[in-house]
Design a protein around this nucleic acid. Structure first.
Ligand SMILES: [Mn+2]
Ligand SMILES: [Mn+2]
Ligand SMILES: [Zn+2]
Ligand SMILES: [Zn+2]
Lengths: 157, 157
DNA sequence: TTGTTAATGAAAATCATTTTCAATTTAAGG
DNA sequence: CCTTAAATTGAAAATGATTTTCATTAACAA
């Protein structure tokens, strides 16, 4: 173990530095939480997960870091209609398991689904190409979300 | 012309009343603006369009009405990432021209597109059916948005 | 016309996110 | 390791969209 608990073994070290950003303790802590967390975290969720280990990192920095990371495409910023932004890690070079979302407008439950993704993605790729040409956009990204009621909420009438 | 300038010739009269809502001047004014407006209006945009004709209608009521209308599926509430919700009329029984969105993350320009819509919609319908069965959701709605840079913003580097 | 109750406006409250600014930290170079 | 310039940060204050409160008004069933 060279140089003790040296930071910077994560693959994102290079990504950040490569884009001219400094690698700080706060950014690492946030990336660490995001990369491990399952669901869709709000800025405050992340703050609360980071806080125990790094009590001096403020919510402001969480927001700032999330901006940087989503600017770099390392995290996705999502809106499920509950008044706060949600973030999810854009999986690294290893396991690329692209997915879309199914949102319950009753209880705000969100399901990640990967079924049908292949067909969807193929169509999207073509659509993207067509739109790029027709409207002159350089497309970087897309969102597909289905809205409805989960079983429980549908029952409640 | 029976009964003078009687309100309530719009097709939405029935829709609102049928769902137990009262038909008020404010609601009509808002529906009127939404049905005629092109783009994607924020609550305040709508307020400003309604104001000249109905100066007593407050922003609060705009928000309240928009909630009702989107609850009924008569308008869509959209998020293009600029910090305020945007609303667009969900076209009535007549011209159903479903569309999706292309959003510039540089200048927030939004393009409605209908190209490819048919293929997309068909795939979505199947996906919807599959998801409904697998996850027990009663799906009411979907969103597809592409994000990228418009020509102008891409040039600005 | 009348009574019930939903709907409304104005003002205050909320609350997620942003801005400000002085202090700290990073990382490049000696 | 030491120095230095610039990026980054935390704390507190500001912002701004949306919501809540509450007394008043308007819609509409009877
Ligand atoms: Mn997800
Ligand atoms: Mn549109
Ligand atoms: Zn639900
Ligand atoms: Zn643009």
């Amino acid at each position: 173990m060279p140089k003790g608990n040296c930071r910077g073994n994560g693959w994102w070290h290079g990504k950040l530095r490569g884009c001219g950003y400094r690698l700080t303790m706060g950014r690492e802590a946030i990336l660490d939480v995001l990369s491990k967390a399952e669901g869709h975290l709000s800025a405050e969720d992340i703050y609360m997960k980071v806080h125990p280990g790094y009590p001096h990192i403020g919510l402001t920095s969480i927001y700032r870091t999330l901006d940087v990371l989503s600017g770099l495409g390392m995290v996705y910023k999502l809106d499920f209609g509950d008044g706060r932004a949600r973030y999810e890690f854009a999986e690294g070079p290893k396991g690329a398991h692209h997915h879309h979302h199914l949102v319950c407008t009753g209880c705000n439950k969100v399901v990640d689904y990967t079924d049908f993704i292949d067909e969807e993605v193929e169509l999207l790729r073509e659509t993207e190409k067509g739109l790029s040409k027709k409207y002159g956009f350089k497309i970087a990204n897309h969102i597909i979300q289905f809205y409805g009621l989960c079983e429980a909420c549908a029952k409640k009438k």
